[in-house]
Amino acid sequence: MKIGAVALRAYVILFFVGLYVPLAVLVVLGFNSGRTVYVWEGFTTDKYAALLTIPRYTNAFGSSIVIALGTTALSVVLGALSGIAAARSTSIRYDLLWTALILLPLIVPEIVEAFSIVLFYQFAGIRNGTEATIVGHTAFSVSFVALIVRARMGDVGRVYEEASLILGATRLQTFTRVHLPMAAPAIVAGAFLAFAASFDDVVKSSFTTSATTRTLPLIVFSEAARGGISATLNALAAVMVAISLSAAIVRVLAIRRLSRE
């Protein structure tokens, strides 16, 4: 009996180590001075420094950031408004439609979604590029913001809103002075999610970016798929891990604090 519990515990520890070790190895190998990533030959920061001198990477980093920020802004505006509304709604039909519309983009295989939007762009005459990618990413990122904001506002309830209306505030005032401040932590958490979803995306980016707006994940994907994991590519991946890992930690901590309140 005791043995079972110990074995389970050992397994779970191993499981969690397994979740993090690959990420740690990635970052450490970025400091490897060897020509290949596999054999450790000594410590150097050259590989990370070299990243800054490769225009292919710096340009991609630039467009990744621009696209992710644009996606975040658009998702936050659309998602927060709608999330607040969904939490207030008392109509079952509204809830059902809302949930279906929000969950569908998360369930449909991304490859089909990306393909369909390309066909639509072709019809509408929308050229691939930064804006096209931002719109494409927002189609799935908005769901994250909307879901978190709805959950948060559902917890808050409608008491404050009613108080504000009874005390004579208009609906607009209630919205800007009561709803928005109360939703703010959830909006921030949602914004981080939207940013990460856009920053990490491969499939939709590859269908909607133009030759000059390729994002970082696309470059990592195409270079790694070709089989060459060079030391600089490894360093690039490590930097990206550092960015998305720290964003994830901030986000999770923020959400955790929210649920504690």
Binding site: V25, V202, V220, A248, V252
Partner: peptide, 26 residues
């Protein structure tokens, strides 16, 4: 929290990391 954090870092990069570790010379 520990489970969710890597879940929200790029799956592309986690795959990338696995590849270097489990590579023939890894």
């Amino acid at each position: 929290m520990l489970l969710i954090i890597p879940f929200w870092t790029s799956f592309l990069l986690r795959t990338f990391a696995l590849m270097t570790i489990f590579h023939e010379n890894g």
